[in-house]
Design a protein around this nucleic acid. Structure first.
Length: 557
RNA sequence: UGGGGUAUCGCCAAGCGGUAAGGCAACGGGUUUUGAUCCCGUCAUGCGGAGGUUCGAAUCCUCCUACCCCAGCCA
């Protein structure tokens, strides 16, 4: 795939913007916004929205705001705000100016609520929540007007002031727009504008005890900021009529437009804040940033690069038709594609088996040179070659067979990656029958060239010096769920957890790896991509997380 | 159920009356000191179903069917 991070083919949103620009709408300006509610961590679905909003703005010479849609203080917190800012920045985006907050517009929103009341378009309703639901009617039957619907402007003003002043308890009354109780669009059956919530807000403290609803806030925030294209997900399609109603009935400074696109779902995972939170709360994972989580911080800790995530987002066509159930393999492909080009190669043996090259002196230590990357542009590293080395136990077989023709086996030769060809002679086993050591001899003059006798080895194995190698903790991660749709069906999604999604092994790594810094990524040849853990890796104790294995076109044959 | 949406390859998706793009996956083959990468090739006579209009339909019309969203004092 190309390095392009903008949509490969055009999409309906770009077409709309191009059209608007051609007609000089908004004075040729393009301003988008990413509007998360700070009630959880960002996940892959948000990453796509971030990518969409920022890349669209950038493509057309505009900018993108980061705006916290903090209208429901009960579920929000400063912790989430900080985490979201860090994630957006890490993904490589810079929002326009300072982060924005819905809460910073509370005064203006309040004024506009007053405006609607004075226009006879909003009223304070003293129906209880249950009554409101009852009066709203049903799909096939129109709702009944609230008995408070025709209160005078003066009374509404007075009642709303009492709401604001805290004279009423939560749930006693609310401010509603007077639209159409018979509308087939339920959103228009006198929607709620303000509700009473006697909780302090993470940004405004105790200034307010009434908070605006999403619908009454979002479009006006867009207008206030001069957002030209307000992009949200498909489930807000029915809210668009309300969005427009407020814009048309309020003296807002601009006329933003809402457009909806399909949500991104990945198979073998869940992307609902509620479920992700449950995994965290139930200690199924170590936290929001557990490497198995589809959160931005989880993927980061897993070793996915921001560029790879951006490329992945760009690789999925933007559709306004429906939600996309994308195969995780597509994400994995983007990750491998990126890591393949940027990750230095190294050798690390996960399941060590000692090989003694008997014709080498005990103190033999030869410094071999190996390229950091196949394209040679990253330079070379030193690899000590000694009499006793370690290879992966899975690369040795007691019996030769066609299927294992690339493995090491008595009487056969194998190429030691970046080093010589050796030939196995015999091996030793312990009481349980487990192979404990292989004795081999060096095939001379095979550094960088094939054996002179023409008996070229079929296979290549990675290896590490038994005494110069360095121990490393390797955290092996795999998909969190073993079912393609953990959400589907009646069963609890947690019943589909993959019991083998996490395993720790102690491996032996080539000594050059001690220079690794947290978050450095590598390809451990023949194994996969690994990243030095962001928090736990240090010079004293190396800790690598398995990002993803190499593509394997052989194992399932 | 009233309203709002959507149905094109295993997954995502382009297509807007002129004879089915592309990506992922899969499958062949070539190169290879990573069974990786890279390269080359294959992969919908078919577009939810049934009718109709047309020289010609995935695209237009009619009628079905299926699925998603709204019906929170959540966003």
């Amino acid at each position: 795939m190309s390095q392009s991070e903008s949509p490969s083919s055009t999409n309906f949103l770009r077409a709309i913007i191009q059209q608007d620009l051609a007609e000089n709408k908004n004075d040729g300006r393009v301003l988008t916004r990413f509007p998360p509610e700070p009630n959880g961590y960002l996940h892959i679905g948000h990453a796509r929205s971030i990518w969409l909003n920022f890349s669209l703005a950038e493509e057309f010479g505009g900018q993108c705001n980061l705006r916290f849609d903090d209208t429901n203080p009960e579920k929000e917190s400063q912790e989430f705000i900080e985490a979201i800012k860090e994630d957006v920045r890490w993904l490589g985006y810079q929002w326009a100016g300072e982060p924005k907050f819905a809460s910073s517009y509370f005064d203006q929103l309040y004024e506009w609520a007053l405006h609607l009341i004075k226009d006879g378009k909003a009223y304070v309703c003293h129906l209880t929540p249950d009554q409101v639901r009852e009066y709203r009617g049903w799909a096939t039957e129109p709702g009944k007007p609230s008995p408070y619907r025709d209160r005078s402007v003066e009374e509404n003003l007075a009642e709303f002031e009492k709401m604001r002043a805290g004279d009423y308890d939560e749930g006693v009354c609310s401010l509603r727009a007077k639209i159409d109780m018979a509308s087939p669009n339920m959103n228009l059956r006198d929607p709620m504008l303000y509700r009473i919530r006697k909780v302090s807000h993470h940004q405004t403290g105790d200034k307010w005890c009434i908070y605006p609803m999403y619908d009454f806030a979002h479009g006006q925030e867009d207008a206030l900021e001069g957002v030209t294209h307000s992009i949200c997900t498909l489930e807000f399609q029915a809210n668009r009529a309300l969005y427009d109603w407020f814009i048309e009935n309020l003296p807002v400074p601009a006329r933003p437009r809402q457009y909806e696109f399909g949500r991104l779902n990945l198979n073998y995972t869940v992307t609902s804040k509620r479920k992700l939170k449950q995994l965290v709360d139930d200690n199924v994972v170590s936290g929001w940033d557990d490497p198995r989580m589809p959160t931005v911080s989880g993927m980061r800790r897993r070793g996915f690069s921001a560029r790879a995530i951006r490329n992945f987002c760009a690789s999925i066509p933007v559709s306004g038709k429906g939600n996309s159930d994308v195969d995780v393999a597509q994400l994995e492909s983007a990750i491998r594609d990126d890591l393949n080009t940027v990750a230095p190669r190294a050798m690390c043996v996960m399941n060590p088996l000692k090989v003694v090259i008997s014709d080498l002196p005990a103190d033999h230590c030869e410094l071999l040179q190996a390229p950091y990357h196949p394209d040679q542009e990253m330079g070379m590293r030193d690899i000590p070659f000694t009499r006793e080395i370690l290879i992966d136990a899975a690369d040795f077989k007691e019996e030769y067979s066609k299927k294992f023709k690339k493995k090491f086996t008595p009487g056969k030769r194998i190429r030691l990656r970046n080093a010589y060809v050796i030939e196995a002679q015999d091996y030793e086993k312990d009481a349980e029958g487990k192979v404990t050591q292989v004795n081999a001899v060096l095939v001379p003059n095979t550094l960088g060239v094939d054996p002179e006798d023409g008996d070229k080895p079929k296979g290549v194995v990675h290896w590490v010096s038994a005494d110069k190698g360095v121990k490393a903790e390797i955290r092996l991660y795999d998909r969190l769920f073993s079912h393609p749709n953990p959400d589907a069906g009646d069963e609890d999604f947690k019943s589909h957890l993959n019991p083998n999604s996490f395993e720790v092994v102690t491996a032996v790594a080539e000594p050059s790896l001690v220079a690794a810094k947290p978050e450095d990524c590598f390809q451990f040849e023949r194994e996969g991509y690994f990243v030095a853990d962001r928090y736990d890796h240090n010079e004293q104790k190396m800790v690598f997380n398995k990002t993803i294995g190499l593509r394997d076109t052989w194992s399932n044959k």
